[in-house]
Amino acid sequence: MKPPVTRDPWAELRARTPARIALGRAGPALPTKAVLDFALDHARARDAVHAAVDWDALAGQLALPTVRVASAAPDRATYLRRPDLGRKLAEGERLRPAPQDFLLVIADGLSAAAVQAHAAPLIAALPADLRTGPVVLASQARVALGDEIGERMGARMVAVLIGERPGLSSPDSLGVYLTYEPRVGRTDAERNCISNIRPQGLGYEAAAARLTWLVREALKRRLTGVELKDQSDLGLIGPLAHRAVP
C-alpha cells in the first residue's frame, strides 16, 4: 500500500546546506514559505549593514588595552556612499607610535553583527604572543584603514578583523586581512585574507591556526599577498621569535 504522503527526496540535502535549493513552486511562482524566508534573510543582511558595534562591550570582552579611532566617514550613511572616506583616518586622529611586530585592528566594516559576535572569540583563540595590545577599534572603517593605522603606529604587520559584506545566508561573517609593512597605498594584492569566520563557516580555532601560520611565514619571508600562499594545513612553524633579520 502506498504511503499517504510522498517523501520529499530533497529534504535531507536541504538540511545540510543553507543554500537555496529545490525550493519548489506554486504555479509559476515560488511557494509562500520560500518567499518569506528570502525576505527575512534580506532583512537580516540589511540590519547587519546598518547596525552599530557596541565598542564598550567589545573592549570589555577582549581583556586587552584598546585604542579607539574613527575613519573620515562621519556617519553610517556617508560611509556606505563614500567607501574612500572609510579608508582614511578622520582629521585630527592622533595615534601614539607603538612599534610591534603584529598589530590587531578591529573594524566594523559591513557587518556589526560579525564583529560583535566573533572578533573576541577569534582573538582569544590566538597564541599568547599574538594576543598583544593595544588593539585598535576602528569605526566606519574599510580594510585599507589598517594601512594608515599600522604605518602611524610603526607596526611591522597589521591584521584587520572586519565585518564582511552580508550574504543572504550569512549576515555575520568575519574576515581577516593581513598586511606586511602596512602603509597608505597598499593594494589588496599585497594582503592575505581569511574569510567566513563564524561557527557555521570557518571556526575560531581553525581561523586562528591559519592566521598564526600566515603571520609566522610573513615575518620570515617579509611579505604578504599573492606571493604568500596559505599552506597552514602542512603545520605551524615556531613562535614569533622566528623573525626576519632586521
Rank of each mutant, 00 (worst) to 15 (best):
P4N: 10
V5Y: 13
R7K: 15
D8K: 06
P9G: 11
L13D: 04
T17S: 15
A22L: 03
L23P: 01
G27E: 08
G27L: 04
L30W: 05
A34T: 03
D37A: 10
L40W: 09
D41P: 00
A43M: 12
D47V: 08
D47Q: 15
A48I: 09
A51V: 03
W55S: 01
W55K: 00
L58A: 01
Q61V: 01
L62A: 01
V67A: 00
S71C: 04
A72R: 09
D75W: 06
T78F: 03
L80F: 11
P83M: 10
D84Q: 10
D84P: 09
L85F: 09
R87Q: 15
R87C: 12
A90R: 15
A90F: 02
A90G: 13
E91A: 15
E93Y: 00
R94K: 12
R94P: 00
R96V: 15
R96M: 12
Q100G: 14
D101P: 13
D101S: 13
F102P: 01
L103E: 00
A107V: 04
D108C: 07
A112I: 03
A113G: 02
A113L: 14
A117E: 14
A117M: 06
A124P: 01
L126Y: 03
S139Y: 00
Q140C: 04
L145G: 05
L145Y: 02
D147E: 14
E148G: 12
G150K: 08
E151R: 12
G154K: 11
V158I: 14
V160E: 01
L161V: 09
L161D: 08
I162R: 03
E164Y: 10
E164D: 07
R165M: 08
R165Q: 14
P166V: 07
G167P: 05
L174G: 06
L178F: 07
Y180D: 09
Y180F: 15
R191T: 07
I194W: 05
L202C: 06
G203K: 07
G203S: 14
A207G: 08
A207N: 08
A208D: 09
E217I: 07
A218H: 05
K220N: 08
L223N: 05
V226W: 02
D230F: 11
D230Q: 13
S232V: 10
G235W: 11
L236C: 03
G238P: 02
L240P: 02
L240I: 14
R243Y: 07
